[in-house]
Every structure is written in C-alpha cells, then in structure tokens.
Computed example of a mutant assay.
Amino acid sequence: MTGFVIPDVTGDGPFDAHSRGALTRVELTWVEKRIEFWIRFGQEAGTQILDRSRRIVFFRPGAVFGFVRWAANDYGTVVSRIDILRAIAPGSACQTLPFVRPGGEILLKIEGWPKVEKVLRHVDAIEGLGIDPADVDPDHWRHVAHWMKAGEAPRPYAAERHAAWLRRREIGK
C-alpha cells in the first residue's frame, strides 16, 4: 500500500510543489529486530507511506528532531546511532547524513548503543520536566554531544536554562 497520510505533502493541501521542496525528508525503515530507524522527537510536517516497513517524514525549516538508527545482522548490532538535527531552509549550507535529504544542521551525533541509550535517557529527563526536546536550546544538544564524546556526563537541562533560552530566542526574532 502506497499513499500519503498528510494531505499538505501531496500538494492537495496548502503546500504547492515549491513549498514541498522546502521540507527536509527523512527515510524511516522498520523491520523488527533487523532495521529500526525512527524519529524520537520532533514536529513532523507530514508523512508519506511507501510500504509496510518504509515511510518518509517531512520537517519544516528550523524544526529540530531526533533521528535514531539501529540495525543488526545475524551476528549482532551493526549500527546504533542518534542524530539530533535542525532542518534547513532551501539553499542553506548543511551537513549531509544518510537517509536525510537534503541534510541538516547536526546538533548532536552519537554512536554506540551504550551512549545512544544515555542520550535517550537524557531526552526522557527533559520530557520529565514538561519540556519538548525539540524546543531545547540547540547549544545544549551540542554540549551533550561534546561531553559524551569526552566520556563525561553532560549537565542536565534545567527549567531555568530553558526559560533563558526562550527569552533569548524571543529577543532574536
């Protein structure tokens, strides 16, 4: 079965072909215990279902999202990775990643299941504060990436830091 779940991605809704080209596309695959690519957080602009195990999700420029990739073969895990990205505007410079088109601004890139699991727990803690991880200060995701790569624990995200980020973002508009 092939189809579109969100009408604005097909061109039937308020988005025309030009605005669809402005969206970042992330290819997701789910084959239980073999290939499991999923979005951990982020506000999708739309979804295109390709078949039972594959779909494409779309993000508007500026949207922040967490993309988890895990794959295994008969001998064990092959890939364990989490990327936290910010979708880019058309024509903007970007970093390329497999399964993300055209690419994005990488805020965090962590590999290896033990570290990926720590990032997922960090995301859970942020949600426990009542904060959407997609709204977190992008500098915090960079902080988490740097400290984890150094083998250290990152500082927890706090409601005070989030409030400061929201004020700073508002001033910058």
Rank of each mutant, 00 (worst) to 15 (best):
residue 36 E to P: 03
residue 90 P to I: 07
residue 30 W to F: 14
residue 125 A to P: 02
residue 35 I to V: 15
residue 4 F to P: 01
residue 159 A to P: 06
residue 120 L to M: 10
residue 126 I to P: 01
residue 53 S to I: 12
residue 73 N to T: 04
residue 34 R to T: 09
residue 41 F to L: 04
residue 169 R to D: 09
residue 43 Q to M: 07
residue 85 L to S: 06
residue 110 I to V: 14
residue 6 I to L: 08
residue 112 G to D: 01
residue 49 I to K: 07
residue 96 T to Y: 08
residue 3 G to C: 10
residue 32 E to A: 14
residue 39 I to C: 08
residue 7 P to C: 07
residue 16 D to S: 05
residue 158 A to N: 05
residue 47 T to S: 06
residue 101 R to E: 12
residue 29 T to K: 06
residue 105 E to L: 12
residue 5 V to F: 11
residue 40 R to L: 07
residue 42 G to L: 04
residue 107 L to R: 05
residue 92 S to Y: 10
residue 35 I to N: 09
residue 137 D to T: 03
residue 151 G to V: 02
residue 53 S to G: 13
residue 111 E to T: 13
residue 139 D to C: 07
residue 6 I to D: 12
residue 51 D to G: 08
residue 9 V to E: 00
residue 93 A to M: 10
residue 8 D to Q: 14
residue 168 R to Y: 10
residue 54 R to K: 12
residue 53 S to W: 10
residue 166 L to Q: 13
residue 92 S to M: 13
residue 89 A to G: 15
residue 11 G to P: 01
residue 38 W to M: 05
residue 163 A to W: 03
residue 6 I to V: 14
residue 122 H to L: 15
residue 12 D to P: 00
residue 169 R to S: 14
residue 94 C to V: 09
residue 105 E to R: 13
residue 40 R to H: 04
residue 62 G to C: 06
residue 59 F to G: 02
residue 16 D to R: 00
residue 95 Q to A: 13
residue 12 D to E: 12
residue 65 F to Y: 11
residue 22 A to R: 11
residue 172 G to Y: 13
residue 99 F to P: 00
residue 137 D to N: 11
residue 133 P to A: 03
residue 2 T to P: 04
residue 144 V to L: 07
residue 80 S to A: 15
residue 5 V to P: 00
residue 54 R to S: 04
residue 95 Q to L: 10
residue 28 L to E: 00
residue 149 K to W: 09
residue 96 T to K: 13
residue 164 A to R: 15
residue 54 R to W: 00
residue 128 G to A: 08
residue 155 R to W: 12
residue 120 L to Q: 04
residue 84 I to N: 01
residue 162 H to L: 09
residue 171 I to H: 11
residue 83 D to E: 13
residue 57 V to S: 00
residue 38 W to K: 06
residue 94 C to Q: 08
residue 124 D to P: 02
residue 167 R to D: 14
residue 18 H to D: 12
residue 32 E to P: 03
residue 55 R to N: 02
residue 162 H to G: 07
residue 39 I to D: 01
residue 93 A to N: 09
residue 173 K to A: 12
residue 87 A to Y: 04
residue 42 G to V: 04
residue 142 R to Y: 05
residue 130 G to M: 00
residue 171 I to R: 14
residue 26 V to T: 02
residue 158 A to V: 12
residue 111 E to P: 02
residue 59 F to P: 01
residue 15 F to N: 10
residue 134 A to I: 03
residue 31 V to Q: 07
residue 136 V to C: 02
residue 114 P to C: 06
residue 122 H to C: 12
residue 4 F to M: 10
residue 26 V to P: 00
residue 155 R to D: 15
residue 119 V to Q: 02
residue 44 E to V: 11
residue 72 A to M: 09
residue 77 T to V: 15
residue 26 V to H: 00
residue 66 G to M: 01
residue 117 E to Q: 15
residue 13 G to T: 04
residue 22 A to N: 09
residue 50 L to T: 09
residue 49 I to Q: 07
residue 5 V to K: 11
residue 24 T to S: 06
residue 161 R to M: 15
residue 19 S to T: 11
residue 45 A to T: 04
residue 41 F to Q: 00
residue 2 T to A: 14
residue 62 G to V: 06
residue 68 V to E: 08
residue 13 G to H: 03
residue 71 A to F: 06
residue 6 I to W: 10
residue 16 D to T: 01
residue 61 P to W: 05
residue 91 G to N: 07
residue 162 H to R: 08
residue 144 V to F: 06
